[in-house]
Design a protein around this nucleic acid. Structure first.
Lengths: 266, 266
DNA sequence: CTCATGGAAATCGTATACAATCTCCTTGAC
DNA sequence: GTCAAGGAGATTGTATACGATTTCCATGAG
């Protein structure tokens, strides 16, 4: 229900990974300023599918994947030219990204990709751990038959990906696993909030899997989590999930520290 | 920090309570369609203060106070006429309300005031309890001298308001008390998230104080919370805060049930 | 050399115009 | 009488235009 509001950003076309080379008209890899000559004279009127959402998803992908660097400015006119649209839908898209917390808007300076510093990332993981733990605790008591099946399937898929050492696949299935827990907690609002945070941490979560052996360890944790939920042990599931996420946070800190990539804040 | 993103909606001019009779031009209580003759010919160009935010805050007030009934349609043209502006800033305002979760948008039907049903309110209070509990637990370990002083002052103010049975004052000081806890948890992101939820529940929180003896009991709970934090007992503070909020949720359900105001969902 | 002041350019927020799509109601046939 | 097809109206999403405000840079004085 509250999906409409919270997870509005990046709701559609998120499963299509890869394949985001260029918006539409300018097939060239010309990056930022573009403003190439528009062959088609800008179709006026109401398009079949709203362009604003499309632009939002695309920009979000660029930000989350790190293609757009933190601190980079999102120029309305440039983006508009790049997509072959006017500033109006671009403004709408950027506003939504601001609401989602991926972009900061400075009153008369413009919109900038929000670079999250290490401190803030740790804070966000701390909250994420709490929310996930809560979801797990509630799920242990409230999960239904359908969701239980989904959860099992998601974990099986994780296991399969881990066995074939397919990091990308594991990343994807891991998403599904956690979504399944959110949906099993019997609190749609909590699920939506968790999803929102999850999206916001997506870019950094992906890095974690680079840590050696992380995938295997993650899978083991998943198995313990499912066991707790299946046993109806709410406190146990909460503890497992909390440490699962917290470890991610710590690991991430380790990774960042070792890479000497401070991820500049502003 | 993340105030910019998360609590963007209803960030300013929220402390100014009351004083929201009419937008600007049409002083008449003419409600919806309006479209009265605009004496001033619609100032074009960039206004000193953006009108969109103003409109958003106003609509938010109307929704939160129940002036706009759940399920009511927000007609862009009507709102625009009422404020004496074009559809553009109104669209922006409505989009922000959608992001904030106060309004639902149905693709080709329009925007509708989101009526939060009892079920969803309970869900939100459940999450609120968790976040507040977390903030308290962290605050018990991390609170500094300055914040400790602020917390004590806030509680003293609560006590004073309770003694004089001033419900309005207590409502206000209670806000400050909880804000103080948020700010003491050493996690700015958590503080921002808690504040966001707090705002969203504001309308319903106010009703709670109508319950007999609630104010006195709330104060007692506050005292226990502070005691736990001062003692550095994180788990204790968490438990106290959780039950503090949860009680509010249950009490609220009682209140709603007794008032026979089902608050229809959609 | 530092600081204040002026103007020009960039940028933002809003007004207006317009076309495509959807909804709803009417009209007609079976 | 019921259902389908058609069109008129309403509504939406986007394009374009424009003025006000702000920022940035240059030029000048102290």
């Amino acid at each position: 229900m509250s999906d409409v509001s919270s997870s509005s950003v990046a709701s559609r076309s998120n499963t299509q990974r890869g394949d985001h080379s260029a918006p539409n008209s300018s097939g060239q890899g010309d990056a930022s300023a573009g403003a190439g000559p528009q062959d088609r004279p800008r179709a006026v009127g109401r398009p079949a599918r709203p362009r604003a959402g499309e632009i939002r998803d695309f920009l979000e992908q660029e930000i989350v994947t790190g293609e757009r660097r933190p601190g980079e400015r999102l120029d309305e006119s440039a983006v508009a030219a790049r997509f072959g649209v006017s500033r109006t839908p671009v403004r709408e898209a950027i506003n939504q990204l601001v609401s989602a917390g991926l972009v900061d808007q400075i009153p008369n300076r413009g919109a900038f990709v929000r670079g999250m510093g290490l401190a803030e990332l740790v804070e966000m993981f701390e909250v994420m751990a709490e929310l996930e733990g809560m979801a797990g605790r509630l799920a242990a008591r409230r999960i239904g038959e359908g969701e239980r099946k989904r959860l099992r399937e998601a974990m099986a898929a994780c296991a399969e990906a881990a066995e074939s050492s397919d990091t990308d696949a594991y990343y994807y299935e891991n998403e599904r696993f956690h979504q399944a827990i959110y949906d099993s907690c019997g609190n749609a609002f909590l699920a939506a909030e968790a999803r929102r945070l999850h999206i916001r941490l997506k870019a950094y979560r992906r890095l974690q899997l680079r840590v050696p052996q992380r995938m295997r360890q993650s899978l083991a944790e998943h198995q313990r989590i499912v066991a707790m939920i299946e046993a109806g042990d709410g406190e146990g599931a909460e503890a497992e999930l909390k440490s699962h996420i917290s470890v991610q946070g710590e690991r991430f800190a380790d990774l960042v520290a070792s890479l000497k990539a401070p991820l500049p804040r502003g």
